[in-house]
Simulated assay, not measured.
Amino acid sequence: MSLRNLKSFSTIGLLAMLAGCANSAGSYPSLEMRPGERVSGTFEPPAPEAPPPPPAVASAELVARLAELRAEASAAHGDFLEAAPGARRRASAAAGSAIGSDSWASAQVALADLDSARSRAAVPLGTLDILYVDASIANEARSEIDSVRNAVIAMLEEEDAVLAQLRANVR
């Protein structure tokens, strides 16, 4: 097939396509708005949501339980602080000593005693965490729980710092 035949076929095809587009019947759809496109009715703004109720005041039972947990943590913290100087002496004596030596073993026992006192202070924190979650779910008073919880966390952070320092001496 020659180039000339190809040009004539493409010209004929182009003319046939243009002839299909030329319709003189005038049956095109109108571009005016249809009834379904018209807006009718009115929008009502959504009702504003009611704000959540303010948290309730802590009950007397909760206040008593919080005081009990704080006292329990404070007693354990007091035991920790009482045992800390002896453990500090033993850890200082064990500094640089070989693992398994008498001074090293004595320091390990003192550190274990401190860990035990710290664990007793951490038990009330677990209970406080449960109380806090329950109060959050029920939208009850949390500020009282939070203040006691923060006090116990501060005690534990102080104990953790002492333990870290003593463990660094013993290694």
Rank of each mutant, 00 (worst) to 15 (best):
E157P: 03
P46N: 01
G41K: 01
S74D: 13
S147R: 15
L163D: 04
V109W: 04
S106C: 07
L6P: 00
E158C: 02
V170C: 02
H77W: 00
I153Q: 13
I99N: 11
R149F: 12
R118G: 13
S10M: 14
P55N: 06
N139P: 02
I130Y: 13
R167G: 04
S59Y: 01
A50K: 12
E68R: 12
P53M: 04
A47Y: 09
S116R: 11
L111R: 06
P53E: 10
G41T: 03
A95H: 08
S8N: 13
M1N: 05
A91R: 05
M33F: 11
I130V: 15
V133I: 12
A25P: 03
Y132H: 15
N169S: 11
K7S: 14
G126L: 14
L163Q: 05
P51Q: 02
A50D: 08
S74V: 07
A122C: 02
A16V: 14
K7N: 11
A73R: 08
A121C: 02
S143Y: 15
D160P: 00
A105C: 00
W104F: 11
V133H: 05
R4F: 11
P54L: 07
P35Q: 11
A22E: 04
N5L: 11
A91S: 15
L156N: 03
I137Y: 07
S30P: 00
E49K: 11
R167E: 12
F43Q: 11
I99H: 07
A154L: 12
A73T: 06
S59E: 03
N5R: 14
S97P: 01
E49S: 10
R38S: 08
R142F: 06
I153P: 00
A16N: 03
S116Y: 12
L62V: 12
E49I: 09
E61W: 01
V39M: 05
I145W: 12
G86E: 09
